[in-house]
């Protein structure tokens, strides 16, 4: 089954139809989605600025990561759940959209990069000198910014 015919099938399911016909569902789920993005952005901002050596340099990197990495993971689960509901409500707008797939790839890339470079800091709290910390920190923050732009542009492409 192609993505298009899957989208068409999904669009015609009673669940998808009821989401579209209940006026508050999409704005409510989008509100939850934005609140969860704010949790990711706030957590990533503090973690990455710390790892870039710009804030909280008196706190060990491992302590900062320990505080915020679980929040990023939990918020991403909320984003996955709310995002799935939005895809169910409007399959064509999302599944057939290049910007949507670009966003998915960037989210996956950003999360895997965060796990690969930030999780080791939990067990070795002081050691972040081996990797180019600043480049990764600003790179990750930039990717999250692009993710937000992609999210908004899905509605226009």
């Amino acid at each position: 089954m192609s993505i298009q015919s899957f989208g068409q099938w999904l669009y015609e399911t009673p669940l998808s139809t009821s989401f579209r016909e209940t006026s508050w569902v999409v704005p409510a789920v989008q509100s939850i989605h934005i609140l969860a993005i704010a949790v990711v952005i706030g957590s990533a901002l503090v973690s990455e600025l710390r790892l870039a050596g710009l804030i909280a340099t008196d706190e060990a990197p491992g302590n900062v990561v320990r505080r915020y990495l679980p929040w990023i993971s939990r918020a991403l689960l909320v984003l996955l759940a709310s995002g799935t509901l939005l895809v169910v409500a409007e399959p064509q707008r999302t599944l057939g959209n290049t910007v949507f797939w670009l966003k998915m790839a960037l989210v996956l890339g950003a999360f895997l990069t965060t796990l690969a470079f930030r999780r080791p800091l939990l067990t070795a709290p002081a050691g972040n000198g081996a990797v180019p910390a600043k480049a990764i920190a600003f790179g990750l923050l930039l990717v999250w910014v692009v993710v937000i732009f992609c999210g908004r542009f899905i509605a226009y492409t």
């Binding site: 934005i34 993005i37 704010a38 706030g42 957590s43 910014v145 937000i148 732009f149 908004r152």
Partner: peptide, 9 residues
Amino acid sequence: VLAITLVFG
């Protein structure tokens, strides 16, 4: 949206 997520975050 970016600004709001930074404010709220």
